[in-house]
Design a protein around this nucleic acid. Structure first.
Length: 418
RNA sequence: GUGGGUGUAGCUCAGUUGGCAGAGCACUAGGUUGUGGUCCUGGUUGUCGCGGGUUCGACCCCCGUCACUCACCCCA
């Protein structure tokens, strides 16, 4: 038996890094006023199809979709934004307070071919802001990401930003783009030809060399923004600059979900091969309305949790596990019973204590204490019980003292509460 | 979905024209009867990914399959 393809266990040896990232992220989110939201793992297929876009790769071939016993079409969530928007609308949150900031952490599912940093069940740390159109929100989110990575000790990441325009300026741009592409048609790969009617914007980030050459001088959304979009983007850039956030304007950054408008960005790394995006986000001012809510500007990002952890592993940022305070060695049945009660009591008092019930030799148990990185060992054998003098050994200094059973617990508390 | 690489002990890996499956680490027991990390000695661990085929004989050659991995595609 083994996990199915693209799915994996995250074992205890690795988990401390995940916990550290999650702790830092949620701490930072809270200080910016975000509230946690938890959403279902399964939604109606229609929700994703409508929000992400019928002709995107995600919806066309990557979703885990199935029918339940009643024949309803359901899908394992491939991303979080759609569900959060659904929730915002369903609970009429706009009525009580249109400005909402959410974060969530959890698994997403896409049926792609697995490779480095890409799994079929992968985890995202997601943040969304509803109800604010200001460009400062855009730069604030990018600043937040930047802060998080800084706190995690990561360097060598770069923020790529672009503006995709809005319903005002995009149609005219698409026309200009299509005209240009039409003239280069014979140089483009099959996929790009397919994209011409599907989603011409995507041609801009084709990675095939011929296509890249062909579109090297293609018109960019950036050069065809309407005044509002242009102002918006300028404000984003300026706000980032004044906060000292480095960024690269990347005209070819075109994100694969249909709902994005205006600002789109990706945080990229060079250390994960082709899976360079560690986080990505964008503004989606039309989606809330599209899904049946009132016109509400919104923006959000997702961090690839798995990828972030892998980047951190590469630079050796694994936090030390908590050492064990005390390991109890009980030799003989009477001592075992005593030891059992001591361990219960000490753990109740907040002292990390372990005891081994296998009845092994002193030597074997000392080895185990060492393996568990115990700071102290309590040795209770027949002699110690008779003489009422339990041995406490400091594993670093090798110093040993005797404690009477009455004084022992208070004495230990004194040692460990320092 | 397409293409390349790799599957041998818990881990990292050796394995000769096709001739009895190995090392290091880990685990475990000892090193005179109750003291860890180092050292020494012994011990345990295998469907050689799985299924076919060729052969007197296959870890080795052939076919299929599954998994991992890298790249394309796409994205977090």
């Amino acid at each position: 038996m083994q996990t199915i393809r693209g799915f994996r266990d995250i074992l205890p040896e690795k988990i401390s890094l995940w916990q550290k990232v999650e702790k830092e992220a949620t701490h930072l989110f809270k200080s910016f006023g975000f509230k946690e939201i938890r959403i279902p793992i399964i939604e109606k297929t229609q929700l994703f199809a409508r929000s992400i876009g019928e002709v995107t790769d995600i919806v066309e071939k990557e979703m885990y979709t199935f029918e339940d016993r009643k024949g309803d079409k359901l899908t394992l969530r491939p991303e979080a934004t759609a569900s959060i928007v659904r929730s915002y609308i369903q609970h009429k949150m706009y009525a009580t307070d249109p400005i909402r900031k959410f974060y969530m952490v959890g698994p997403m599912f896409r049926r792609e071919r697995p490779q480095k940093g890409r799994y079929r069940q992968f985890y995202q740390i997601d943040a969304e802001i509803f109800g604010v159109e200001s460009a400062y929100v855009d730069s604030q989110l990018i600043f937040l990401l930047n802060q998080l990575f800084k706190r995690l000790g990561l360097t060598g990441l770069s923020a790529h930003i672009n503006s995709l325009g809005c319903p005002e300026c995009r149609p005219s741009f698409q026309k200009v783009l299509l005209d240009f592409i039409e003239s280069k048609k014979d140089m483009l790969c099959e996929n790009c030809l397919r994209r011409m009617d599907k989603n011409p914007l995507r041609i801009l980030d084709c990675k095939i060399e011929n296509c890249r050459n062909a579109i090297a001088h293609a018109p960019a959304t950036l050069d065809h923004l309407c005044n509002e979009c242009s102002d918006h983007f300028n404000t984003v850039k300026k706000a980032l600059e004044t906060q000292g956030v480095d960024f690269i304007v990347d005209k070819s950054l075109v994100r694969g979900l249909d709902y994005y408008t205006r600002t789109a960005w990706e945080i990229q790394t060079t250390t994960l091969g082709a899976q360079s995006a560690v986080a990505g986000g964008g503004r989606y001012d039309g989606l809330v309305k599209e899904l049946g809510g009132p016109q509400t500007p919104a923006i959000g990002f997702a961090i690839g949790f798995d990828r972030l952890v892998e980047v951190m592993e590469q630079i050796d940022k694994i936090p030390e596990p908590l050492p064990l305070d005390l390991f109890i060695i009980s030799l003989g049945d009477t001592a075992m019973e005593k030891g059992y009660h001591w361990s219960c009591e000490l753990n109740q008092k907040g002292i990390r204590t372990e005891i081994d019930f296998r009845g092994k030799s002193l030597k074997a148990l000392m080895k185990r204490a060492d393996k568990l990185a115990a700071r102290y060992v309590l040795i209770a054998g027949e002699n110690e019980l008779i003489e009422n003098a339990i041995i406490l050994r400091n594993m670093n200094t090798k110093e040993q003292v005797s404690l009477s059973m009455e004084d022992m617990i208070p004495e230990l508390i004194k040692i460990f509460k320092k």
